[in-house]
Every structure is written in C-alpha cells, then in structure tokens.
C-alpha cells in the first residue's frame, strides 16, 4: 500500500470528504481554502477561495454539484463544485463547526458554535441542487442547545432524524422534519473529557459511529440510540469511520495538538487504527502522519481511505490484497 501524499494545505486538516462516486476528495484545513482532488491519483482539481477564516467542515451533495463549507469566519458557503465559484453565503453570529447534506441532497444541516453569549445551534436549510438556482435565505428550522452545545451532527436514513453529538459526551436524536428532541443518551464519558469529536453514518444510515475524547468509539443505532459496539483505544479520538465492503472501523486520534511537541512520534500514537466492527478487536494500524489524525474518510466503495492530520498532510490510501483477504476464522467457516 503506497499512500499518496497531498500537500495542498499549509495548516492542519479539519475535514475530508469523498463524493458519492468516490472519484473526488475534498479537504478543508485551517488555512482559508478548500481543495478538491482526484482520489485515484491525487491530482488537485482546484481550490475554492472566499472564506476569511479557518475552515472547519465540508460536505458534498450526492450528485457532486454543490459543495457546502462552514468556517470560523461565521459563514456557510455553497460552491459550484465544477468551477470553484461561490454561489451562496449564509452569515451566523458564531463559527460553523459542521455541515452535512441529507441523503437526497435537498437539506443541509449546520452546527454553530456557542461563543460570546450566543448559544450553540443547529440550523437546517432547504437546498435546490442546481448551480443556477437561488438558495433560500432563511433556515427551515433552528434547534438551540440550552445545556451542552453540539459539536457534530448527521442525518439518519430518509432524513428521519438528526443525530447530534455533544460536548458533554451525550448523543441526541431530533426529529428531522420538525427539529423536536426525541431522546438523548449519555453515550460517552460525562463532561468535556467525553466530548464527541466525530459522527459518521453507515452507508445505509441506520447506525453511526462516534469518536470521543474519552478514548472510545461507539457504534450506535439510529432508531433507539442503543450502543451496539464499543471500541476502546489508548488515545483521545478525533475521528471514526466505517468501511463498506469489509466490516472494519477506522479510528484516528493522537494526543491533543498542544501536547504534540512534548512527545515523541512513537508515543504520539499518530496512527490510523483498524478495528473489526463486529468483534471489536484491533486488527492493525497504519502509520504515516507525524501529528494527530484529525479526520478520516473512507471511499464509498470501500477501496481505500484518506486521512488528514494536524501535520497538514492528507494521505490517500488504496487498500491492497491483504486487506480484502483478511477474514476471521468464523467468517471463513461460514463462507
């Protein structure tokens, strides 16, 4: 496995995303540009200029027409994927930490930061998946978090629920149509030690994986918020991803960015960890980054994955044969 190194950013990566066909890869970092790459060979397709602050999040609609980004300049921007032109800007009082298109691309959720007296919110915008269309100015509805702010959020299947992960380690389920709270659970350690850093949905969006600062990742059912699997690691996690085709989970983390200079690379645990989704066993690690892993995205066809680190690099990996050949004995017996 020879990773492709993408050096398009000058600062640490914040999120990377594949489009639905898996041929394009989008990366955002704390420098103010978004990069689009061809995932197959690492060629850069282009950059999107316009944000004034660090970018926190990126998402691409299922047809690869529109790109949404959220940044520390308190805006969400919608871009034309093909030309790199900015189509729409929504302003907020605080930074935008997470955006995500719904499964059909007609809705966009955004999580805003709680800062300067403003409470954290989650807003949902209607989206017309067309470059020419005029996007609506006002959100469909807004959820305000009175207790603990949300850090991440995701859509369930058929836009039925919105799942939010919170700073205090709890996971909440909101109605996708009205924005009403249905239930919440304390999925991770209580308090900021259990802060949820990432939520990624399974391909069918019936369950999701969370990553938390409490060094665990959990697979949780979308409908009843039941914790199905727990993956225990020895380092705070920044990201977790599910792999299609093989039943694996990829976790990324490493100690806090501020502690990096005081620890060696070996101790730093800057590796992508592969766990078996069913057996919860660690099955391998992939080295490479020399800073914590901030974000991991898996190719929608399960043929590879990309990781973005605090070191400013994106590493695109295409899995080779041993990865696909690996099975547990019980799996082999069944086959």
């Amino acid at each position: 496995m020879r990773p492709i190194l993408l050096q398009g950013h000058e600062r640490s990566l914040t999120q990377i995303k594949y489009n639905k066909d898996g041929d394009l890869l989008f990366s955002t970092a704390k420098d103010h540009v978004i990069c689009a790459w061809y995932s197959v060979n690492g060629e850069r397709l282009g950059t999107y200029h316009g944000h004034q602050g660090a970018l926190w999040t990126v998402d691409i609609d299922p047809t690869s027409t529109l790109l949404a980004t959220g940044a520390a300049d308190n805006t969400i921007k919608i871009w034309d994927v093909k030309t790199g032109k900015s189509l729409k800007t929504w302003d907020f009082p605080t930074a935008v930490k997470r955006v995500e298109f719904s499964e059909d691309g007609t809705l966009l959720l955004a999580v805003t930061e709680a800062r300067m007296g403003f409470l954290g919110t989650l807003v949902v915008f209607p989206i017309i998946v067309d470059v020419e269309a005029q996007q609506a100015d006002a959100p469909l509805f807004t959820i305000t978090f009175r207790e603990s702010k949300a850090t991440v959020a995701a859509w369930s299947y058929l836009n039925k629920y919105i799942i939010t992960g919170h700073e205090d380690g709890s996971v909440s389920q909101y109605d996708g149509k009205s924005g009403e709270l249905i239930q919440d659970i304390q999925a991770h350690e209580i308090g900021t030690a259990g802060q949820i850093t990432d939520i990624q949905m399974a391909p069918d969006r019936t369950y999701f994986v969370t990553a938390s600062k409490d060094k665990t990742a959990k697979i949780i059912d979308v409908d009843n918020l039941k914790v199905l699997k727990t993956f225990v690691t020895d380092t705070p996690l920044n990201t977790a991803a599910l792999t299609p085709k093989k039943d694996f989970v990829i976790l990324g983390g490493g100690q806090e960015a501020r502690d990096v200079t005081t620890t060696s690379q070996r101790q730093g645990k800057f590796e992508a960890r592969f766990y078996h989704k069913i057996f919860e066993d660690e099955i391998g690690r992939v080295r490479g980054h020399f800073g914590p892993l901030n974000t991991i995205a898996v190719h929608p066809q399960g043929t590879g994955y990309a990781s973005g680190g605090e070191d400013g690099y994106v590493r695109v990996h295409h899995f080779d044969k041993p990865y696909f050949d690996f099975t547990y004995e019980v799996e082999r017996m069944k086959a």
């Binding site: 492709i4 660690e282 391998g284 990865y323």
Partner: peptide
Amino acid sequence: TTSVGENIVFRPSSNWK
C-alpha cells in the same frame, strides 16, 4: 502538491494486539 509516500505494509491480523 502530490507525491507518493513510502510503501506501508498493512496486513490486518486477528491477533494484532
């Protein structure tokens, strides 16, 4: 912007830990 990293041997194994 794009370079190829050194080869990484990645063999998942059930007794990795």
